[in-house]
Design a binder for these strands. Sequence first.
DNA 1: ATTCTTACA
DNA 2: TGTAAGAA
Length: 135
Amino acid sequence: MGRQDRRTMPLFPIGIVQSLTDLSARQIRYYEEHGLIHPARTGSNRRLFSFEDVDRLLEIKELIDKGVNLAGIKEMMAQKEVRASTLKSEHNESENVKKDLSDRELREMLKQEIFEAGRLNKASLRQGELSRFFH
DNA sequence: ATTCTTACA
DNA sequence: TGTAAGAA
């Protein structure tokens, strides 16, 4: 059994995940509803989370704590997958002709990530300011 | 005893 | 997001 299987193997019920992540069941289900996680289901419709799901939830929690809203988290995780697949495809290039580009693109991706983070952070700060202002 | 869905505050 | 109700 590969290491990947162990990461994606459906293992724990929502109660365990709650204590593991300090997120409420409500939040966990809500994030699933919005496509941020895809826990498996048992024959009796119980959610079963993998280590991968838990790690994802922890990342989500960090972003939430930083004030990023769900839309922002979605974008960041989408961006992350783009970076991941780009790295993967470049890794599979047999020639080192592209190794040069890889380096530039790596910096470009990092720049985009930072830019994205800054943009989303500003957006969520506005959200925070507004809710304070209108309360 | 736990978790699920749905609905309301 | 929290919480409640009723079902599984």
